[in-house]
């Protein structure tokens, strides 16, 4: 499913390299850009509202593989969503971000999930539900259990984070990478899995980037 950049030819050894496209989705000001910024630059600051989409990359050297993340940080305002679907096309993973101090943003994350379910086959994309702003626990409107339960019923990864105090931000992305790599392995060990034709189709299709 991932675009393999240089399979097994890295000078360090026979580790495969993968490129994964990750997209951040969620309401306005839940902290999508701050999560990306914390993850890529390990810093936190007040950020301007994202217009359309910001783009980051991050390299990961893991024991089992080299992974390059292509991170697409989208604007939360619905007005921009006319262009948004262009960004999550061909994504390998999605972070559905909500703000634990604002219940509405969880509902919005659920709508995003419906949208993704329409556009991707089950298991075609790794999805994580992320409750951000744990540093504002005093103003919490969504309990951990509520997020967790929803994630469980839908088969999503789940984590609560704080981009501000650097709580579990790395862990979210690591969780995603591990799930993606696990799926790679699963695919490799089952040479003719059910639904293989879908994978073939995607692989033979010239990978055209869209916005």
């Amino acid at each position: 499913m991932a675009q393999t950049v240089t399979p097994g030819t890295s000078p360090e050894g026979p580790r495969p390299s993968y490129m994964y496209k990750v997209v951040l989705l969620g309401s306005m000001s839940v902290g999508k850009s701050s999560l990306a910024y914390r993850y890529v630059r390990n810093d936190f600051r007040e950020l301007l509202p994202t217009v359309a989409c910001s783009f980051f990359t991050q390299m990961l050297n893991l024991d089992e593989a080299t992974v390059k993340f292509e991170i697409w940080d989208t604007a939360g305002q619905e007005k921009y969503q006319s262009v948004c679907h262009l960004y999550y096309r061909d994504a390998h993973a999605a972070l559905l971000v909500y703000d634990i101090t604002n219940k509405q943003t969880l509902s919005r994350a659920k709508l995003w999930l419906e949208e993704l379910e329409k556009r991707f086959l089950p298991n075609e994309i790794v999805i994580a539900l992320v409750g951000n702003k744990t540093d504002l626990a005093a103003e919490r409107e969504v309990t951990t259990e509520e997020g967790e339960e929803f994630a469980q019923t839908k088969g999503l990864l789940f984590m609560e984070t704080s981009a501000k105090s650097n709580h579990q931000v790395n862990d979210v992305f690591m969780g995603i990478v591990q799930e993606l790599l696990r799926r790679e392995k699963e695919k490799a060990s089952k040479p003719f899995p059910h639904g293989r034709s879908t994978v073939d189709l995607r692989a033979s299709e010239a990978r055209t980037r869209c916005c």
Partner: peptide, 13 residues
């Protein structure tokens, strides 16, 4: 494969 919308949207907006 760089699309104008990916960078110029903000220039206009």
């Amino acid at each position: 494969e760089v699309k104008y919308l990916q960078f110029a949207f903000r220039w206009m907006n």
